[in-house]
């Protein structure tokens, strides 16, 4: 890349809104949508698996097999159907989060002590109300722990989506940087991607503190230890 400096600040100031700002927003959208969709699906699957235990082994195997499919292959597989739109990235990334989130939802619900569940039944909670008002809140620390892993993994995977031209900070790295032998966009893209991961993780930590005040002085350990896999950053 010649003797150009690593970072050319004038390029950054000149391109702050576009492409840098645009790519960042794309990246945020492409990562948050799969996280939210994945969470929704994982809750439905997790509740079903907790309710009907026989369902869990096949579902667990299923989401793990999905996780093993390389993301780039999945993007190309979807291209003919969804084109160069955001769904080509969102669908595979949502499926990947399931491998992390489904076990966490099942584990989280499994942490509800039997005597607590029985007391809820005996107090006269209807099954749905019991799920929403008793079991979900108790499962929350474990679910959020999984969500943190899934969020960071997804944010890093969105960059791969740029390989097939789906936008995001990867686009900055690939199109503006790598192809033009120009390091500044590459550095900007990587830095923003990492910062975004930190930011989203921070928001989740904060959310957990606000949503689960009862864990502050004792239960936090229960949430921390249970994220199934932290090694999930894909490329």
């Amino acid at each position: 890349m010649g003797d150009q400096p690593l970072v050319r600040w004038d390029w950054i100031t000149g391109n702050l809104v576009d492409p840098i700002g645009t790519r960042l927003l794309e990246h945020l959208q492409l990562s948050l949508s799969p996280i939210l969709i994945g969470l929704l699906l994982a809750v439905v699957l997790g509740v079903a698996c907790a309710r009907w235990r026989w369902l869990y082994p096949p579902v667990f195997t299923g989401v793990n097999v999905l996780y093993a499919v390389p993301s780039i292959a999945l993007f190309f597989l979807l291209l003919p159907y969804t084109g160069f739109g955001p769904w080509t990235a969102i669908i595979p990334l949502s499926l990947y989060t399931l491998a992390i989130l489904v076990p966490n939802v099942v584990d989280g619900l499994g942490q509800v002590p039997d005597h607590v569940r029985q007391a809820a039944v005996a107090m006269g909670f209807s099954p749905l109300r019991r799920l929403v008002q008793v079991e979900f809140p108790i499962a929350l620390p474990v679910v959020i722990a999984g969500l943190r892993v899934a969020a960071v993994a997804t944010i890093s995977m969105v960059s791969v989506a740029s390989l097939v031209g789906l936008g995001g900070l990867g686009q900055l790295i690939l199109t503006d940087g790598f192809r033009r032998q120009f390091t500044t966009p590459i550095v900007v893209g990587i830095t923003l991607s990492v910062l975004l991961a930190f930011l989203v993780d921070g928001v989740l930590v904060l959310a957990q503190r606000l949503l689960t005040p009862w864990t502050r002085d004792h239960g936090a350990a229960a949430g921390r230890g249970s994220a199934r896999r932290g090694e999930g950053a894909r490329t």
Binding site: V116, A119, A120, A122, M123, G124, P137, W214
Partner: peptide, 21 residues
Amino acid sequence: PAVLRRSIGYVIQQAGLFPHR
């Protein structure tokens, strides 16, 4: 059953308190 149970108090061995409340 849910309506019936609201009219019957129930105390369980380990108290069965809701840890999040």
